[in-house]
């Protein structure tokens, strides 16, 4: 199989990708999701490492971590940077590509940059 050489490509203007938003880019076999997390941009492949679901169509939000002193023993953290797979609810941190439960199960991440108010993805 011929490996495609990563290319820097135009995604959209930054105005079209506000914080909390995601743009799905038609690149490669599965597409890539570009996320704006509180003003910083990240990109992950639209392919869950579990069974291949379109990961970027899942809900974006936070996750829970243990907080023994809290009445419900948990608190919400990493707001806006966790995507939940639409099939089996696996959680990934879009800023690292790591699965929240088991960081060894990861999805591919890509370089994103902004130039003159325009978002570019290298994929």
């Amino acid at each position: 199989m011929v490996q495609q050489v990563p290319t820097r490509r135009f995604v959209c203007s930054l105005d079209e990708l506000p914080p909390g938003g995601m743009k799905l880019v038609d690149v490669g076999k599965f597409g890539v999701g570009v996320y704006n997390v509180h003003g910083a941009l990240y990109a992950i492949v639209n392919y869950c490492s579990h069974e291949g679901a379109p990961l970027c169509l899942g809900l974006i939000g936070g996750t829970n971590e243990s907080a023994p002193q809290s009445p419900d023993r948990m608190r919400r953290v990493r707001d806006g940077q966790i995507v939940r797979c639409p099939w089996h609810n696996w959680e990934y941190d879009v800023t690292t590509g790591q699965n929240v439960a088991d960081p060894r199960r990861r999805v591919r991440t890509y370089q994103v940059d902004v130039s003159d108010g325009e978002v570019y993805l290298t994929a």
Binding site: N64, S66, M74
Partner: peptide, 15 residues
Amino acid sequence: FWLSMRDQTPWVDRY
């Protein structure tokens, strides 16, 4: 099930 719904019992911090 833990891989899918870990966030409901986040104190379970390993398989």
